[in-house]
Write a protein that binds this DNA or RNA. Structure first.
Lengths: 221, 221
DNA sequence: AGCTCCGTGTCAGGTTTGTGTCAGCTTGGG
DNA sequence: CCCAAGCTGACACAAACCTGACACGGAGCT
């Protein structure tokens, strides 16, 4: 999953980034609203964590225009205790949830999961496609009856594919989604990971197909 | 849509203007920043295409003051490959996207569309015509029930046709739309690709018709 | 610290295949 | 009947892709 964290407090931001990164997510961090807009303009995020008090404006305005622009990326607002009074107001503006600082990281994680689960049509957030089942929470991939051990990056890559089966993803897009801006991996890295995933998927009724010159796609065989 | 192209290279500029004009847009072209400022002062644009290296200054300064003046017209920056290193810097200055030269025109168009769509909410776009369905996301062409494997160039050519069925496209137009400005393919290449597409479309209720002396057209048979 | 293990990304080389050109052929209009 | 326009099989080249090997570095353990 690719997260955007909009938060001006460096200490808190770093802690959150570290924690979410450990969970295997890609996290970009913006220190103010302007930077956040830039990130959003060019990258697709799965979830946005938004502070309210920011050096160049109020996070609520951001939220408002975000929704006005018909963007449906879920947003969790981080509010300070003093701002509690209007936390409901935040929901009215289109936030999916809020969490009050200071918070436990495990609580943050739980809320992120909950919001993402709600967004992807409900009850379970397990993805099925043909004979493979992908559980992003348990980080497992099941092919038929056998469970397959995937490493972190392999998991994230496979997640991208199974969230939009049959869709073609270019290598450059995959690099964007798999790595954060400060890591500049080559597109060859994608080729390598696709190769590794293919090895894992041997025997499955599902395969990653190369679309020469355009990218890769997950499809049934 | 009304575009402003700020670019000093005549050859490239003309090619881009021609192409966008073909798509039915109005394009003004400025060869330097001074001219660009004049245009902006008097006209409202939907999108600005901005080169970085210009005879009278750096496009980034333009971008900066553009945003400082609270103008929200979207900007796509055209960068040379050597300037890639600071592409994120460009985004920080307020660009909506960037594209690296040399680029395919179809890619430029796609990015323009994406930026414009982001500015005003979006939807999916699968093209249907008679018994064929073209899905630009999955990069697939379906004729009746059977899926057809098209290569990169074939796909892009077919996309041109199905986006405007029954419209006649001259070979020179097709060359323009299919190749980037630094590739000079012959018109015979188009004939070859039309031939290949026809082979793929055998059995479909749709065909590419030759209009002798004028070009080709997609139509129902 | 020192050590090992494992995940990760790069590289080099080998292989595949998409692509555009050419040459010779067919078609159609005048 | 002739010429221009269009068609097409074959081909050569380069880009795109694949993969085994390797080097690097962080995590965990002793």
């Amino acid at each position: 999953m690719r997260y955007l964290l909009v938060e001006d407090n460096d200490q808190l931001a770093n802690a959150v980034v570290d924690r979410l990164t450990l969970d295997g997510h890609v996290v970009d961090r913006a220190g103010d609203l302007g930077t956040a807009e830039d990130f959003i303009a060019t990258t697709e995020y799965d979830l946005i964590l938004l502070d309210i008090m920011l050096p160049d404006g109020d996070g609520r305005h951001f939220l408002q225009s975000h929704r006005a622009a018909q963007r449906d990326t879920p947003v969790i607002v981080l509010t300070a205790r003093s701002e509690v009074s209007d936390r409901v107001g935040v929901l009215d503006l289109g936030a999916d949830d809020y969490i009050v600082k200071p918070f436990d990281f495990s609580e943050l994680e739980a809320r992120c999961r909950a919001v993402l689960r709600r967004r992807s049509g409900g009850a379970s957030n397990v993805h099925r496609y043909s004979d493979v089942v992908f559980d992003p929470l348990a980080c497992t991939l099941t092919v038929g009856a056998r469970e397959i051990h995937l490493r972190n990056r392999e998991l994230r890559l496979f997640e991208i594919f199974i969230c939009a089966p049959d869709q073609v993803f270019s290598k450059s897009k995959l690099v964007d989604r798999l790595f954060s801006y400060d890591v500049d991996a080559s597109e060859n890295a994608i080729e390598v990971y696709v190769g590794r995933l293919r090895k894992h998927l041997e025997g499955a009724a599902v395969q990653i197909v190369t679309v020469r010159g355009l990218g890769y796609r997950l499809s049934q065989s």
